[in-house]
Design a protein around this nucleic acid. Structure first.
Lengths: 223, 223
DNA sequence: ACCTGAACACCGTTCAAGT
DNA sequence: ACCTGAACACCGTTCAAGT
């Protein structure tokens, strides 16, 4: 007796949307149900534990059914990652501040905060489990992250398009997020909260950028 | 007919060490043979494709034999990652320069260079496939990376122990390495070589650190 | 002490067949 | 149009049994 285990675990929308999609997904939204089941496994146990067969069981369909809607296990995960990028972008866009320097710090904190709030999702979005060249949507979504950072850096005085500076700033906060998720910071930072480490790191970077801007301005006005 | 495929692919040490370990590993070094087979699959096809059964086939033993020497598939991968950290550490320690600033840049380039030279290994070392809390040796190895960077930063004028600065510098170069491996830099940096991006990023960071050092010195001397 | 063979409980993916 | 069931070729891990 194999026992379906998780099959009876989820019962969403107990009252809404029950035209004729009661016990069969024949007219229900199977793609959404599969994404939902996959995401709940992702958040609870990580990307490696998301199997198409378990997802199908959780959605109450046969293990072959997902292939009507997703080309592969990887395609389903890519669909989750794309949604994750959307959420990350929304979080970053919402970071406003009158002082450009403070805005950059807030952006860094928001980026790292997203990674801390959803570590499995963050790792899926940036980790090696997804062969990203096959999913151009993911690259496009990541580019929007870069665009937000670039705007913030131009506001800080970097000369447009400021792509190099934006990449560096992105690398800094991305690296901080990775190191924090790997628990490589708390041990070393003493009792200092991770977000304070982020703030200090971005401050150093902003100072360096300011020094560069001042120097370039001096150079161009003296010559 | 399943065909052993990779079983006949590798034939190392054709002349040395053939006391009595010719066709049977009974007296050979099976752990080393397993590590070797696993590493060659890792480099060629990534960590996800390293299966214990294929590794066993490549080493010419039954699929249960590896369990005499490694507790699990993950333990074998952790053993590879530990070796990778050793190589990374050796690379960093070899980065010397009379100017502290140039040394920090060299360290960053070496770190990113390691990631570019061995992307699958780098991702294994820092990615989510290994549950690192279970392998303290990996954390210890990573700490040595931090120690090298901290020394370089103290030489640059950061006040000892300079842990916060070291973490920030680590995050910066680590993030650059990750973004480069994900091809998120070449598209944006134009024709600029990745290493030039690294140099510029570390320069900005070093400038910010210098500004901070100067400011702190001024504050303590004026009060 | 070290390795094998069979067994168990899983996978991803494909495909004919059902409704 | 959408889903099922059986099938194929794999996995990791365990364990009695062999030498």
């Amino acid at each position: 007796m194999p026992a379906p285990k998780t099959a009876a675990t989820r019962r969403p929308k107990p009252k809404t949307a029950r035209k004729q999609a009661a016990a069969s997904y024949h007219h229900g939204d199977l793609p959404a149900a599969l994404r939902g089941a996959a995401e709940s496994i992702l958040l609870a146990r990580g990307a490696a534990d998301v199997s198409l067969r378990e997802v199908a069981r959780a959605a109450g369909v046969s293990h072959a059914a997902p292939y009507r809607h997703f080309a592969s296990r990887e395609a389903l995960l890519a669909s989750l990652a794309a949604a994750g990028f959307e959420r990350l972008k929304a979080t970053l866009v919402a970071c406003a501040s009158r002082q450009p320097r403070e805005r950059l710090i807030r952006l860094g904190e928001a980026y790292v905060g997203f990674a801390i709030a959803e570590p499995a999702m963050f790792r899926l979005m940036f980790g090696p489990e997804l062969a990203k060249p096959a999913f151009p949507e993911l690259k496009a979504a990541a580019d929007q992250t870069l665009a937000v950072l670039r705007d913030a850096l131009v506001a800080l005085g970097a000369s447009p398009p400021a792509t190099g500076e934006a990449i560096s700033a992105w690398a800094l906060v991305h690296g901080l997020a990775e190191l924090i998720l790997d628990d490589r910071i708390e041990e070393h930072a003493g009792s200092e909260a991770p977000m304070l480490t982020v703030r200090r790191a971005v401050e150093i970077f902003a100072d360096g950028l300011a020094a560069r801007v001042t120097r370039d301005a001096g150079k161009s006005s003296k010559r």
